[in-house]
Simulated assay, not measured.
Amino acid sequence: MGRTVDLRMTGKRALVTGSSSGLGSAIAKALAAEGAEVVVHGRDAARAEAVAKEIEADGGTAFVAIGDLGTDAGADEVALAAGAVDVLVNNVGVFDMSKGWTDTTSADWADLYNTNVISGVRMIQRLVPSMRERRWGRVVQISSVMAVMPLAVQPHYNATNAARDNLSLSLARELRESGVTSNVVAPGGILTPASKARLTAVGHANGLSGTWEEMEPEVVRAVAPNDIGRIARPEEIASAVAYLASPVADFLTGITLRFDGNWYSAA
């Protein structure tokens, strides 16, 4: 059965930062499947081009923009390659669960803030003015439930997500009545190959056995309990981003969509 909702993305151009792998790749593919021209971004040209080729093989249209958004010069390069876009998805972000309060230096805090927050600000400053001129656009920040349910570990990461939520709300107010919206999608856990391997190891360490499908509910209860009882798939989160990026979501701005299965406890 085909789609029952047309998100009306045909003719729109979207830049997804950090889309050469993982969730960013899934978002780029979802937007392309809805008819948007997608600019795949990364720092590694071969990886970004591989994602673009996958999109094109599935009948979509994709371009590539290479650059380090941690610098103004890199952001300039990416903005130039992307051109005038209708949709900006700020997905670039890193985390490190091995870090805690006692071993996170001030340099660690500054570096992570630059990557997770200022990189998005750089792209907003470069790409949103033209959206405003055209009276239509979408900015979607990828955040995390850690913004409101922080763990004791990786405090610098948790804080950057709170900052992303806040800047998105401020941007929505700045763009009021302009036709450009600003929203956040905040996942809990995401089942990627890397997280699956890590969580499988956690399951084994806690005496669980069997396939991932058999262990997943127990691992979720132990690590990140939620009312759905499993971990979100990248494609599910990508669909939520595609909706907020579409003309169908014209009346939504300033929201943070928690995509965490109603996570009710932080481990």
Score class of each variant (00 low, 15 high):
Asp227Ile: 09
Gln141Asp: 00
Ser239Ile: 10
Val223Asn: 08
Ser168Asp: 05
Ser119Cys: 04
Arg198Pro: 01
Asp165Lys: 00
Ser178Glu: 11
Ile118Glu: 11
Arg135Met: 13
Pro150His: 09
Glu177Asn: 09
Ala242Asp: 07
Pro187Val: 01
Asn114Pro: 00
Val185Glu: 01
Pro150Cys: 09
Ala107Glu: 15
Val121Trp: 12
Asp227Leu: 15
Val148Cys: 08
Tyr157Arg: 09
Ala205His: 02
Gln141Arg: 00
Val180Ile: 11
Gln141Ala: 02
His156Val: 11
Arg164Ile: 00
Glu214Asp: 04
Asn166Cys: 04
Val121Cys: 01
Arg221Thr: 12
Glu177Pro: 02
Thr115Asp: 07
Arg164Pro: 01
Ala172Val: 05
Arg135Gly: 09
Ile190Val: 13
Ser178Asn: 07
Ala163Thr: 03
Glu133Lys: 12
Ser130Glu: 15
Ile118Leu: 14
Gly120Cys: 04
Arg230Glu: 07
Trp109Pro: 04
Ala159His: 03
Trp212Glu: 02
Met123Ser: 06
Gly188Gln: 03
Ser178Trp: 13
Leu169Val: 13
Ser144Ala: 03
Pro193Gly: 11
Tyr157Cys: 10
Arg176Asp: 10
Pro225His: 10
Glu216Tyr: 01
Gln141Glu: 00
Arg221Val: 12
Ile118Thr: 12
Leu199Arg: 14
Thr192Leu: 03
Met149Tyr: 00
Ala238His: 08
Trp109Phe: 12
Leu175Glu: 08
Asp111Phe: 09
Thr192Ile: 01
Asp165Thr: 00
Val145His: 05
Ser168Val: 05
Trp109Gln: 02
Tyr243Val: 09
Thr200Pro: 00
Ala172Lys: 10
Ser195Phe: 08
Pro187Gln: 03
Gly210Ile: 05
Glu177Val: 02
Ala152Asp: 14
Trp136Val: 11
Met131Glu: 10
Ala245His: 12
Ala152Glu: 13
His156Thr: 08
Pro129Trp: 04
Val220Thr: 14
Val148Ser: 13
Gly203Asn: 08
Ser106Trp: 11
Ser144Lys: 04
Ala222Asp: 13
Leu167Met: 13
Ala240Ser: 15
Ala186Gln: 01
Ala197Trp: 14
Val117Gly: 05
Ala162Ile: 02
Ala240Gly: 15
His204Leu: 15
Asn116Asp: 06
Leu112Pro: 03
Val241Asn: 05
Arg176Cys: 02
Leu169Thr: 09
Gly137Ala: 08
Met215Tyr: 05
Leu169Ile: 10
Arg126Thr: 10
Pro217Met: 03
Glu236Arg: 05
Asn114Leu: 14
Gly137Cys: 08
Tyr113Cys: 08
Glu216Thr: 07
Leu171Glu: 00
Asn114His: 06
Arg233Asp: 07
Glu213Phe: 10
Asn183Tyr: 01
Ala159Thr: 10
Tyr113Gln: 07
Ser209Arg: 12
Glu218Ser: 14
Val117Arg: 02
Ala201Lys: 05
Ala232Met: 05
Ala163Asp: 06
Lys196Pro: 00
Ala232Trp: 03
Tyr157Gly: 07
Trp212Thr: 06
His156Arg: 05
Arg230Cys: 02
Gly207Arg: 04
Ala159Gln: 02
Val153His: 12
Glu174Val: 14
Gln125His: 15
Thr181Ala: 15
Asn116Phe: 01
Ala163Pro: 03
Ser209Cys: 08
Gly189Ala: 12
Ala159Trp: 07
